[in-house]
Amino acid sequence: MSNTQEPISRVSIICAKGGLDEVYPALILANGARMEGIEATLFFTFFGMKAVMKATYENLKVATVGNSALNLAMPMMKMPVTIPFPTLIGAIPGVSSLSTWMMKREMEELDIPPVGEFLEMISDAGAGIFACKLAMDMFKLTRDDLIPQVEGVLTVGEFYAKSAGASIIFT
């Protein structure tokens, strides 16, 4: 493939949300960058912190309330994608867990690792994983609350300094 544009050599990916479906795009982009030989930094902030907290990273959920695109998951239940997924059904206890379980099963089939294993893989691939200082303060977290793959805690300024020359991607 010919490409006259300068190839991307560095990316900084921000993950600011903590739903299972909201964390994966950041993980896939970071890992995919390393697979292409692109330097990658992965920065978790705000509710995205859930993905790097020991207490929560294994239990991220798919939001089934107020998620108007959830009917995309219908084919996983062998139902047509045109069937709507009403928010009221999403609010029934257990539905979010069931949706999460289904999505995880589907991902395992596609060889997409669970969040913890994925973060380990991304870290081993040489990407830097960082957490946001302000989010740490806001959610009353200490370094000990975070998984060991988190390399450090950064202020916004430090994040920008680390992102010098990188394309910044907000997910």
């Binding site: 390393r34 697979m35 292409e36 030989g37 380990e120 893989m121 081993d124 691939a125 040489g126």
Partner: peptide
């Protein structure tokens, strides 16, 4: 994984 990246640097 770490070794894979060392063996084949850059992807």
């Amino acid at each position: 994984t770490k070794e894979l990246y060392q063996l084949f640097p850059g992807g």
